[in-house]
């Protein structure tokens, strides 16, 4: 077989990587999603030393290297601390369907929380997004106990 390496590409082998996992979510995610599903509340955990309310909730405060303590309800209102508008297609992990573009994405600091969490913003127009804007979580009617229970954060006027 003659090959002209200047013009022809060398062999490329298509490989599809498919592996299966069952992630152990742990007690904190378990309670977080159960609470969201049953009551619609968004819950964080408080570090007994630095008193930061951490989201997503977790067993350990990494800064203080101690176990986190009491559960604290946060939000559903919060403040956008960073935002973007996404112009490339993204398959929504919770629905398996592509999300219409452009859509907004942000880091939202829920009222009462230290950590800002990333989520989808209803507003996708970068002209209408700004740091410091107020938003509120919109939850689904039928909740399944996963992060898709929060549909998005809508812009609110206060």
């Amino acid at each position: 077989m003659k090959r002209n390496s200047q013009q022809e590409e060398l062999l490329r082998v298509p490989v599809h990587m498919k592996l299966h996992y069952r992630f152990p979510a742990g007690a904190h995610y378990d309670k977080f999603f159960e609470e969201m599903k049953e009551t619609g509340k968004i819950m964080g955990v408080k570090c007994p030393e630095c008193e930061r309310v951490l989201l997503p909730p977790r067993p350990v405060c990494g800064e203080c290297f101690v176990r986190t303590g009491e559960w604290v309800q946060v939000g559903p209102k919060g403040t956008v601390v960073a935002y973007t508008s996404i112009y490339f297609p993204f398959v929504d992990g919770t629905t398996g369907k592509p999300r219409p573009i452009p859509y907004g994405a942000g880091l939202i600091q829920l009222d009462g929380a230290y950590s800002a969490i990333n989520h989808i913003l209803e507003e996708g127009d970068p002209e209408k997004l700004h740091i410091g804007m107020r938003v509120e979580a919109v939850l689904t009617e039928e909740r399944e106990g996963n992060i898709g229970d929060i549909l998005y954060f809508k812009t609110i006027e206060e």
Binding site: P24, G26, H28, R67
Partner: peptide, 26 residues
């Protein structure tokens, strides 16, 4: 199957115990 706890929970326990054994802190 340690599915009853998150990986970070398992690791935190083992790290803290090694520190306790050594008599040191973070």
């Amino acid at each position: 199957d340690k599915g009853y706890e998150a990986i970070i929970e398992t690791v935190f326990k083992v790290v803290r115990e090694a520190m306790r054994d050594a008599g040191i802190n973070r």
